[in-house]
């Protein structure tokens, strides 16, 4: 082909970007396939070893190795234009955010519910059912030595014993949030402060106008430790988050 031209908005482009063709040698595909086969057999064999709590991280590590081999070599991502890798990695980052936030919320709401005396209906029903008919131990299966140890710790529940006055459950926000500080709360606190104070933060969050309103309106953010703040930009931003309900379970907002 004799010097084909690429046009952008009707004008010729001098050095147009084009993908180059990369032909992977067959031995490389074969090596990757053998590695994948080996890892599959490894993860299959390890699953019989009964690693207990370690089995999930081990299996995930092997699966991530296998997935990277497939993506890098079978899907050619290692030799492609970097932009495809960028698109792919960005979607992985979003998946990570999706997982982290949801699972973190799962693990913290339990504690908050407990504190406020809120119980899931299914827990109450399950407990009542268990009291009525104690479960018979299941008959032992023919397979020996493969059954997992139960790893569940019974969760302490806020129970209203007969005789004590049942108290109306207060939401943590009503009670002034007196609970143990967790690393997440400090993290959120400092991260929001840094994000809003940093030059980039102003541009990402654009909280200036509503932030000003929040500060002049005298909203104060109170975090879970009971520490009140409202003076600086970061804390004002936190108050806005809390008011908008995004992090409402974790941060209370009071009027100054």
């Amino acid at each position: 082909m004799s010097d084909p031209k690429v046009f952008l908005n009707g004008k010729p482009v001098e050095h147009p970007h084009e993908d180059h063709h990369h032909v992977t040698p067959v031995w490389q595909f074969t090596a990757v396939f053998i590695a994948l086969l080996f890892l599959t057999i490894l993860t299959y064999a390890v699953s019989f070893a009964g690693l207990g709590p370690a089995s999930l991280p081990v299996a995930m590590a092997v699966a991530i190795c296998k997935g990277s081999l497939v993506v890098l070599f079978f899907m050619h991502l290692a030799y492609e234009d970097r932009f495809y890798a960028f698109v792919f990695v960005v979607s992985l980052i979003f998946i990570a955010i999706f997982f982290t936030f949801t699972l973190f919320d799962m693990s913290t709401t339990d504690e908050l519910n407990e504190e406020a005396g809120i119980e899931f209906q299914r827990h109450v029903m399950d407990q009542a059912e268990a009291l009525e008919n104690p479960p018979e131990p299941p008959p032992p299966k023919a397979t020996v030595g493969l059954r997992p140890r139960p790893r569940v710790r019974p969760r302490p529940r806020v129970s209203t014993a007969a005789g004590t006055e049942p108290q109306a459950p207060l939401h943590p926000r009503q009670r002034g949030l007196g609970r143990r500080p967790g690393p997440f709360f400090f993290g959120l606190h400092f991260a929001s402060g840094l994000a809003a104070l940093g030059g980039g933060g102003q541009r990402w969050l654009r909280p200036t106008s509503s932030l000003k309103a929040a500060r002049e309106g005298g909203y104060v953010a109170q975090n879970a430790v009971g520490h009140r703040c409202g003076g600086c930009t970061g804390h004002g931003a936190m108050a806005i988050y809390a008011r908008s309900g995004v992090f409402a379970p974790h941060i209370g907002v009071l009027r100054r």
Partner: peptide
Amino acid sequence: DTVGQQMSSAKLGMWLFACTELLMFSGLFL
């Protein structure tokens, strides 16, 4: 305009589709 351009756009579209596939399955994994 060129074969290379056609190829790049086709591949970018495919990679975007592949990413949405991952996002869809990630909900079930979660």
